[in-house]
Design a protein around this nucleic acid. Structure first.
Length: 406
RNA sequence: GGAGAGAUGCCCGAGUGGCUAAAGGGGGCAGACUGUAAAUCUGUUGGCUUGCGCCUACGGUGGUUCGAAUCCACCUCUCUCCA
């Protein structure tokens, strides 16, 4: 193993864009030692197997991981299967169901396929924490628990909030940071990466490593990426996410809909532009916001689907929404239905094709002018269609269906 | 173990016997405006229904009543204080 970049150069590369590094000094020392002894550092990143679909928010940390990888370090991708198998009792309604081994296997495979778009999996190590957590005895667990106090646990932001607002916190939840920290012990991690919201957990890892006689890991946290709404953290449950498996046209459109203020952050965290390129973009934004945003959408789409697909996505977007286009997407999902002799009402068609989730929803859309049939606004839900009719129905801005009645 | 408080629609939260499918806010959806952005404004937001209307819903199960989210009993869960 030969490192092409000096420790100082490495330090600069990996700390760029990070929200926090604990600490720079320790990191530099580790990098120096690894450089001198020609030993790659072990870089840990944990993943939760309950949500196998990766979105752009997850990629922020993965990009950082890739930097370490291309600098020649050993990245370890840890899948928290043990944790997933236990489930999370927090919140009576949101109880995370315990996953079966089969589900976890499947999720892990899905994960790998997606992570592989960013990391070089041939050079990465993939581990499951059940490997060591499962074998721990109760005595081991007690020893582990003894390393941390309740008061310190309550320092964690969300615990503190919940404690103050008198919402339940189960004891198991206190175990999560400990388990995660113990993973670092088991892996002898030199560096752990995570989102900024993971800061506490990563720091627990340092404490535990010390307690178990190891040199504490350096923690690098990345800023949290806001989702499409520009307010909340990008997450699947909030629906404000861009999945890396999203269709190119979808991905392109979604990115274009982010608030302007977010553009630069997206450039910083989701693309691989240099500091000087970023600076140029920053200056361009006030003058040509639309162009800059389009370029962003194209660039990110290209990262996951190739530049050809990105260009097509842009062309299609223009076709639908641009001034020159005809307002229709390239490919519209076709639905064939057989119509009864007396015909079908438009309202019925909307619910059957799931353009509207219920009859009430369909009525509302019609009433509010959210429905177009063959590009003409239609407010009469009672209008009937018969077999032989072909119609393109649009619900809202971007839901299209081509309905063929037989 | 003892004493007290509480559980309402996607979320928060009002509502203490009929006018409550349930105030208000958030979120969502749609429209206007735009650059499919943000901000703003408007409308809408349980299900079935063109409509009349019907059904389901206020932690669970029973009960009181012509009538209950609202009263009673028991149960489940959560929080607070004391031990």
């Amino acid at each position: 193993m030969k490192f092409s970049a000096t420790p100082k150069e490495q330090l600069e590369i990996v700390s760029t864009g990070a929200a926090d590094v604990v600490s720079h000094d320790e990191l530099l020392k580790k990098l120096e030692k690894s450089y001198e002894t020609n030993t790659p550092l072990t870089i840990k990143l944990g993943a939760d197997p309950s949500a196998p679909d990766i979105h752009l928010g997850h990629t922020v940390v993965l990009q950082k991981m890739r930097q370490f990888q291309s600098l020649g370090h050993q990245v370890v991708f840890l899948i928290g299967d043990f944790t997933g198998r236990i489930g999370d009792p927090t919140g009576k309604k949101k109880t995370r169901p315990a996953l079966s081994e089969e589900e976890i296997r499947l999720n892990a495979e899905t994960y790998k396929a997606q992570v592989g778009k960013i990391l070089d999996l041939d050079k990465a190590k993939i581990v499951f924490n059940s490997e060591w957590l499962e074998k721990m005895t109760f005595a081991d667990v007690l020893k582990l628990s003894a390393q941390y106090t309740v008061a310190r646990m309550l320092e964690r932001d969300d615990f503190e909030k919940r404690f103050k607002s008198q919402t339940p916190i189960s004891v198991v939840e206190f175990m999560y940071p400990l388990m995660q920290g113990y993973d670092s012990v088991a892996l002898h991690a030199d560096v752990e990466l995570g989102g900024q919201d993971q800061t506490f957990n990563l720091l627990v890892g340092r404490e535990l490593q010390r307690a178990y006689g190891q040199a504490p890991q350096v923690t690098i946290t990345m800023p949290i990426l806001e989702g499409l709404d520009g307010k909340e953290k990008m997450s699947k449950s909030l629906g404000n996410y861009v999945g890396i498996n999203d269709e190119p046209s979808q991905m392109y459109g979604k990115i274009l809909s982010i608030p302007d203020e977010l553009m630069i952050k997206y450039y910083e965290l989701l693309t691989d532009l240099s500091v000087s390129e970023l600076k140029a973009i920053k200056e361009e934004i006030p003058n040509r916001p639309k162009e800059v945003k389009m370029r962003l959408a194209r660039q990110i789409t290209a990262q996951y689907h190739g530049s050809e697909a990105a260009n097509n996505a842009e062309a299609e977007f223009e076709k639908i929404f641009g001034k020159t286009g005809d307002g229709l997407p390239e490919n519209i999902e076709e639905v064939e239905l057989s119509a009864p002799a007396e015909g079908v009402t438009l309202q019925k068609l909307l619910t059957v094709t799931e353009l509207a989730s219920s009859g009430g929803e369909a009525r509302r859309l019609l009433q509010q002018g959210g429905i177009k049939v063959n590009q003409i606004k239609e407010t009469n839900g009672q209008k009937t269609y018969n077999s032989g009719d072909e119609l393109i129905v649009q619900a809202g801005k971007r839901n299209f269906k081509k309905i063929i009645l037989k």
